[in-house]
Amino acid sequence: MGGTGRAVSAEGLGKRYGETAALDGFDLTVPEGTVCGLLGPNGAGKTTAVRILATLLRPDGGRAEVAGFDVASRPAEVRASIGLVGQHAAVDEVLSGKQNLEMFGRLYHLSPGRARRRADELLARFELAGTGNKPAKQYSGGMRRRLDLAASLILEPAVLFLDEPTTGLDPRSRNEVWEAVRSLVDGGTSVLLTTQYLDEADQLAGQIAVLDRGRVVANGTPDRLKSLIGAERIDVVVHHAGEISTAVAVIGRISGNDPELDVDNRRISAPVRDRVAALTDVVRALHDAGIEAEDIALRRPTLDEVFLRLTGHRAGRPAEEVAT
C-alpha cells in the first residue's frame, strides 16, 4: 500500500466508445479494509470501471489510484497488488484446480515449491482439496468460481475486484461465494464488487455506490441508502379501480411517501420504514375506509425502484454493456 489509507480512489474517470459514454465523471473512494458494492443495471458502466481500475483498460480522462499506485503510470505495481475475478471463471478448463493454481503461482513468480504449497493451501481453504486431478471443466459453477477466486488470491492481494461474482450461479453456489468473500474481508482485504442485486450489495458491502450512465449517483452505507429509498415496500392490490384513489391517500399518509401507482393491475406501492407497524396500520386503515384489499405484501425494493428513486428514470437499457 502507498500509505494513503485508500484501496481505490478514482476521480473523474471517463471512457467513451464512439458516441456512447461508458463512464462519465466516475468518482469513487474505497477506504482500506472495507467492502464497496458498485450497484447498477447492465450498461451502467460497472465492468468498465473495474477494468480500468484493474489496468485492463485505459481511461480517456480522469485518474485513479489502486493500493496507492496510479493505474496509468504504474500498472505493474497495481497488478502486483490486486486480484481480479471477472464475469467468466477465468481458469484453464483442461487443467485441474491444482494445476491452475500452480501455473498462476509460477506466473506470480513463486518458486515451484512455494507455488505448489500455496496451491494446496488455497485448495483447502476453498474446499476444493478433494477435486484431485479432475479438469476444471467438470467443476460445478460454484466450484469454478471458487477456483477463480483462489487464483486471484495467490499473492494475498491488498485489493480484490469482483465483477458480478455470483451472476449465473444457483442460490447454493451463490452462498458459497458469499461465504468465501466474507472470510476474505475478515482477513483485511479491501474489496470492490459490482452487482446487479441490491440484496448482494447489502449482504457483503459496508458501502454501496449506485452507478447510473457511467456516474456514481448515490454513495453511502447500506443503511443510509435504505433510508433514501425506503428499506421495504408495501404493495397493495385493490379489487376495484374506484378504490384506488382512497387507497393511495391512505398508503401515502402512512408511509409518508408518494405511492407509485400501477393502474392496470390496481397495484399501489410505497416505501415504508417500520415494516410491521406499516403493515398493521395499512390493513387497519384500509378496513376503516371500507376497502377490501385483494393482496397486501411487504417486499424489498427492486433495483428498478432504487433507480427510479435515485435517478428519476427507470433502469431500463440505456446503453449496452460495451466492455464485455
Binding site: L56, A76, A80, L84, G86, A90, D92, L107, Y108
Partner: peptide
C-alpha cells in the same frame, strides 16, 4: 473465457 484478461491483470 477471460484467461487473457487474467494474464493481463497479473504482474507477469
Amino acid at each position: 473465457k477471460g484467461v487473457t484478461d487474467r494474464f493481463r491483470a497479473m504482474p507477469m
